[in-house]
Design a protein around this nucleic acid. Structure first.
Lengths: 205, 205
DNA sequence: AATTTCAGCGTACATATGTACGCTAAAATA
DNA sequence: TATTTTAGCGTACATATGTACGCTGAAATT
């Protein structure tokens, strides 16, 4: 039932997705992509595109899902590192920066479409980020005994700062990126401190 | 020397700019605008566009400048209100939320082009936001006796959170917006507290 | 009054895009 | 083996876009 045919179809579907990711860059966002160019890079005729996606929109949503998946895998990896005794803030930030380096275009997509032009996209990205926030909030609540509401607001603020820094890091060289990362770590410490004060937490930063 | 002629030219130039702002919305970003449509709404022929701007790009940069101007006027207003004895954080946040309500499309432009597709745009927006950060940093440094470097990082974090919340507020109704604003205020308090702790400041939040 | 300047227009063109339609060959099924 | 299914192709078309070019009439300058 695996079928030579279904296999090949899956393959060109992936070719389309990776062609699309490939065409993202600092100067080329998803809405700049054209069906024809994506098809060209994937090595199929424009009209064959429709065998796989109803729409460029549908392709885009698939891409958001994929980027979200990568992000979640990353979170697991960060959690493992933390469990092995790393500092929470430092480990999380460095893991995130690796993601930006390794999967820039997946990050770019999430970043841009978060405040992008399509409602469906915005919702999809918001869902992915919400995952991130809730997970972190839960961690902060149980681990630092912070009051639930404050844990959530703290997590939200932290994720916002991390994503924003990620966005800046995309266009920076290593030196700038290092400074940026250090600033970010301080800023996260501020939040941890402050939230601890108002929310009655133990401080583990 | 004011000239009926120059006067008229200025008028249609403004018509172009305001037509362009008018066509921005949640589902329509600057890069979706077309020269022809902007010209149409401004009531001139497509080719006449070039009498005013070399490019859509040049129009866009002008728009960024204009939005930046609005933002700076806003800051002055906030400072006046604070001088009249308002709480710093609350006053700033509410003033900012007014801006988002009153000049949504100017804010939309800054917001989107900050991580947008054109290098020149990104630079222009970054400059505007930098203004904001530096001014706030200076205020924090002199007013709360916070150490300079910490004052900067604190200001940066605060501006990031405010802008991000602004972005979310754009698509929200009044109830959601109120909750959002309250969360934001807490988050800013966290930062003020935390930065105060590490940077040796008096707390005025 | 004679001349120059120039904002705005209309025409025209090359180009890129999405997508409807029908065909083909090879894989899947019967 | 005979039949059906379908991924991918090529052709074709309607549409939108940026912009080159030359004209016009009124304001500005001489």
């Amino acid at each position: 039932m695996s079928g030579i045919r279904a296999q090949q179809k899956q393959k060109t579907r992936e070719a389309l997705i990776s062609a699309a990711f490939n065409q993202l860059s600092a100067d080329h966002s998803f809405s700049n992509l054209s069906l024809r160019e994506v098809a060209r890079e994937a090595g199929i005729a424009p009209t064959s595109f429709y065998r796989h996606f109803k729409d460029m929109n549908e392709l885009g949503l698939t891409m958001v899902d994929e980027a979200g998946l990568t992000l979640r895998q990353l979170m697991r990896q960060a959690r493992r590192r933390i469990a092995n005794g790393g500092s929470v803030i430092q480990t999380s930030v460095h893991t995130f920066m690796e993601f930006i380096d390794t999967s820039s275009n997946q990050f770019r997509l999430l970043l841009r479409e978060r405040s992008g032009t399509s409602k469906a996209f915005r919702a999809a990205v918001a869902r992915e980020i919400q995952h991130f926030i809730l997970e972190l909030a839960h961690y902060l609540e149980t681990e630092t005994h912070c009051e639930a509401n404050h844990a959530y607001m703290q997590a939200e603020a932290m994720v916002t700062l991390v994503f924003h820094s990620g966005a800046e890091a995309l266009d920076q060289d290593l030196v700038q990126r290092k400074e940026l990362t250090e600033r970010l770590i301080w800023q996260l410490r501020y939040i941890a401190r402050g939230a601890g004060h108002y929310g009655g937490a133990t401080n583990h930063a």
